[in-house]
């Protein structure tokens, strides 16, 4: 139906954004981040998390759609105590691009 197509943005036409989060490395931080996106009804398309070698930090990469609420979402993420920094990249960031071959 036409209006449904309108309500559900087609992934090809909506711009994507990659968020890079520096977080404290401890069990639970992933739940904090993923839970925040879920309960504020903001879709996460892709997620990647690895510890940063030689530090007590982890890095979380999130692939999200750019919509009007993204700035609000980033502000909410920045409030999490275990999130140290949030950086925003374009969708052409290579971190997810190079993973795509594992999803075919």
């Amino acid at each position: 139906m036409e209006h449904e197509a309108y309500a559900m943005p087609a992934p090809d036409t909506v711009r994507k954004v990659v968020l890079e989060l520096a977080v404290r490395n401890h069990p639970g931080v992933m739940t904090h981040v993923c839970g925040l996106f879920a309960r504020r009804a903001f879709n996460v398309e892709g997620i990647l998390c690895m510890p940063v070698p030689g530090s007590d930090e982890s890095r979380i990469w999130l692939l999200v759609f750019e919509d009007a609420r993204l700035a609000q979402m980033i502000a909410q993420v920045e409030k999490l105590e275990d999130v140290l920094r949030v950086e925003r990249h374009g969708a052409d960031h290579r971190v997810f691009e190079r993973l795509e071959e594992f999803f075919h």
Binding site: G28, T31, H32, G35, R39, E81
Partner: peptide
């Protein structure tokens, strides 16, 4: 408890 308290607190710890 840790999981239950995430969405209803400013911060939490186990």
């Amino acid at each position: 408890t840790y999981g239950l308290s995430i969405p209803i607190t400013k911060h939490n710890w186990l």
